[in-house]
């Protein structure tokens, strides 16, 4: 798909609630919405667009567990005294056993949080295709200001269908309608 140019027809709305009712109308007419862009997250938008719930929390959990294990296994491997590890350099501190779990808990906790946070954030940027220096096509500069954008892909559509979409935008209260190739 990459490298292919897409024709996009998009309407800009002034208010998220007008946009929402436009999306409801589009769903009723079975129009194929390409995407919605907004200056801030709009609540109640996801079910209208049929977006599934994000599974980012699963990623967070997996990375968190990875952190827990890294800390637990790492410390056990170094200090030994546990069933699995004899210890790289077992040391007694304050008369405590080599493997003293209560003393390890703070570091286990910190590494759980650290791995979870880094893993989840990195995965977030990767799956969204975002990152330092990335230049994603921007339909309109005012989308990060005060415009709410509803976009349709029109590459494969006939002129009549495009005109139909333009009529749709007008009837739903779009302030502006533009075409762009991205």
């Amino acid at each position: 798909m990459k490298g292919q140019h897409k024709e996009v027809l998009f309407g800009l709305y002034n208010d998220e609630e007008v946009l929402m009712s436009a999306i409801r109308k589009a769903n009723k007419q079975h129009l194929d919405i390409m995407d919605v862009y907004s200056p801030f997250p709009i609540h109640g938008l996801d079910p209208l667009l049929g977006l599934e719930e994000s599974r980012l929390h699963v990623v967070g959990f997996i990375f968190g567990m990875l952190g827990t294990l890294t800390a637990l296994i790492g410390i056990s491997w170094i200090f030994g005294g546990s069933l699995m590890f004899e210890g790289d350099w077992p040391t007694i501190f304050g008369g405590k056993p080599y493997w003293s779990l209560p003393a390890f808990i703070p570091i286990i906790f910190e590494l759980t949080v650290l791995f979870c946070a880094i893993g989840m954030t990195v995965v977030f940027y990767i799956i969204c295709g975002l990152g330092f220096g990335v230049n994603n096509p921007i339909l309109d500069d005012r989308i990060t200001d005060d415009k709410f954008c509803l976009a349709f892909q029109t590459s494969d559509l006939e002129t009549s269908a495009v005109d139909n979409l333009k009529g749709f935008f007008k009837s739903t209260g779009a302030e502006e309608v533009h075409t762009r190739t991205i």
């Binding site: 995407d35 919605v36 862009y37 907004s38 200056p39 801030f40 997250p41 709009i42 938008l45 996801d46 667009l49 977006l51 994000s54 980012l56 977030f124 940027y125 799956i127 969204c128 295709g129 975002l130 990152g131 330092f132 220096g133 990335v134 230049n135 994603n136 096509p137 921007i138 339909l139 989308i143 990060t144 954008c149």
Partner: peptide, 14 residues
Amino acid sequence: MGWTGKAKHWQRHE
């Protein structure tokens, strides 16, 4: 980072 304000991105961001 190439932020566009896409609905799915906002969802994940939240």
